[in-house]
Nucleic acid binder design. Sequence first.
RNA 1: GCCGAAGUGGCGGAAUAGGCAGACGCGCACGACUCAAAAUCGUGUUCCGCAAGGAAUGAGGGUUCGAUUCCCUCCUUCGGCACCA
Length: 816
Amino acid sequence: MPELPVYNPTEIEPKWQAKWDKDGLYQANIDYNTPKFYALTMLPYTSGDFHIGHWYAMTPPDARARFKRMQGYNVMFPIGFDAFGLPAENAAFSNGIHPKIWTYANIDRFHRQIRSMGAMFDWRREMISCDPEYYRWTQWFFIQLYKQGLAYRKFAPVDWCPKDQTTLAREQVEGDDRHCYRCGTPVIKKDLEQWFFKITKYADELLDYSTIDWPDRVRTLQTNWIGRSEGAAVVFHTEQGDPIEVFTTRPDTLWGVTFMVLAPEHPLVQKITTADFKSAVNAYIQQAARQSDIDREATDKEKTGVFTGGHAVNPVNGEKIPIWIADYVLMTYGTGAIMAVPAHDQRDFEFARKYGLEVRVVIMPSDSEPLDGAKLIASIPASGDMVNSGPLTGTPADLALNAAINYIAEKGFGKAAVNYKLRDWLISRQRYWGAPIPMIYCDDCGWNQVPEDQLPVLLPDDVEWRSSGVNPLTIHPTWKYTTCPVCDKPATRDTDTMDTFMCSSWYHLRYLSPHFDQGPFDPKEYDYWMPVNTYTGGIEHATLHLMYTRFFHKALRDMGITKGPEPMIQLRNQGMVLGEDHEKMSKSRGNVIPPDDLVAHYGADTVRAYLMFYARWDMGAPWSSGGIEGAYRWVRRVWTLFTDPVEKGNPRPEALRQLRRKLHQTLKQVTHDFEVFEFNTIVSGCMELLNEMYKAREQGATGTAEWNEAVDIYLRMMAPVTPHVAEELWAFLGKPYSIHQQSWPITDLEAAAEDLITLIVQVDGKLRDRITVPVDISEEDARRAALGSEAIKKFLEGAAPKKVIVVPGRLVNIVR
RNA sequence: GCCGAAGUGGCGGAAUAGGCAGACGCGCACGACUCAAAAUCGUGUUCCGCAAGGAAUGAGGGUUCGAUUCCCUCCUUCGGCACCA
């Protein structure tokens, strides 16, 4: 008896990977006769460790890309590396390895590890963001944004990470303690002149998700981050006649304004402060400046402030109101000045009570007794009819806002206005390992862009690392010295580099033609492949990369470089693989699961199958080293069944009928689940079918046409999940290479249909009996069968049912 | 405080145009094979109960013949934002 082949993944996996590679099986080329499908997975960052999380992010989407390909799409599934950034520099600093060497060594290792997944990446399209060939175009994009006025330089208080010694964008400062997203160090404020991208210009458009299928969670996060609020801009004037504009969401409370508050940094503070109050005001300003943002923005802090001695005039009633400064008013939102309505705003209320300022009720909730401002213990947040409001007194709640806006607009001291929390994107980084900002400063001509034919501005390799952590570009002996592109006199380069999120804002375009040198991408490739059909990755980028890349696309679209409203049509987020201890994996916790060891032990197919099976993909879950055994067992059981010598048996027709039924039911379900990213039930469905096939074998089904059909479809269904073992078994059974070039099977709905069903019989909604009946049983017959059941008769105790509900094909519920 | 997501066996999870709760897998128990172990195969496995039966999808209420699914009020966990005028 010939020995059966033994399942040995470490042998078959590299074998097929090499062959697929040699045959160019996964190369994606323009084919105008085939519908395209651009499947994109977020590019990995090249820091030290390749992680099981990378497998989780990449292999289920790979399976889906393979499924799409079998469905007949021309699928592009590219991969590349986000390679600039601080970790490389930190490694250089602590180990004495140059960031470039460190980064490319990591990429080498990543190549090996990613190839072990057996994914259908088209490596010809690989991009690496720190290649000059790539960052040449990152710089070119900067210049295009600059020429459009979308990149500008501004002196402003900005977030600075003292450990990483660089500025950060607002999106990169996180948490209660306002820490750096990379290293966790609390940031401080610094006044610096930096480059910004005008993302705020697109705030409204970024709120429009009508053309994309993105998860609610991401849309909500972006919407909240953009923070649009509607209201009115109202101009007050100081006694000296200087205008002070405020933004308010409640213009209907204008008659309740009893004072104004300016941020300590507000430019008018010095001018309005009277001599008597100068020293107190200056002391307060200094104290506010010394405080960290954390202290200053703590909501539970008691409010403080000082009177400036100055007054403003309320335009609606001509009243003279005092102007205070207080640090609860932020210079960075609105206009840095507010009209205070203590009766209807809790912050203003607390401030007014503390400093003995008047509280005047101008909105009366309909169900309320008349309210006296002097006696309130908290502000009244509810809407209501306007009172004590001059000509608008008596305006009902639902008309109040519009009436107030119309009134101030008519009188000419205000208008409807919109405000956003979103700030412009600060992109300057005082670090070496990034794309240099292609700008030159000349004492005579100011800032000018590097001429495009001189791109890329190359990073110098010969740099010195000082213990102070200073950016090596600033101390390089020659690099920054150049000549002015306008007047040709000596000038200096910007020594800052770009935020790495700039690099990742357009990488999906470089995949289109990674070596194209006439532009960032080949327009012919763009027209065929874009937009991205399905984008997959972590939700942690919701208000970072995923917002930046949308902005980027829209800005480029306005320049005619890209087309369409959005870069990525469908987005799906995977969850996180936690350690077995239910904690986030980290070296320090020692709970990291190294994928290489798993592949060596179980093979890539089992790791892929387990990652798809073990949790809902969008949720993630703790890793289970016992659980993967189940996936391994499944693969081996498939192997055993399919390599078993086939002997034709003598099965009953009903057994074959049942096999086909289960087969096509499974196919229907798996097809659906691939479409909607429900990977866990794809694998469990295949497991169920396998159990059914084992039963069918017991009954002699092997060797029949039905059996052969089941084997054929089974392998096609598992090919996207476990590409190597599917290919091996496909070849073992003498089927034509390659299984990955086969089409997705068509469900035979007739075969999938049940002819008998289990009719559920309930009494008062509780299950009391199950009766097997034909699927097309009539309502009347179902009713009769249910009432004829012995078990049911027992429950009815001879009484006539009050009501009988028949759900055709499902159940009968008898109400007593 | 505000916004969002999620609570189902010992564990991961399955089932929602409202209709058999716990598919599939892990784990566990027993059995077969084996000198033995591993592997493999078989049986069982929500809880209470000998059983008949009863209870159960975070808690409480509601709608309904019928609720894991819809509505209301809470509780817990996780994520985000946070003096945003």
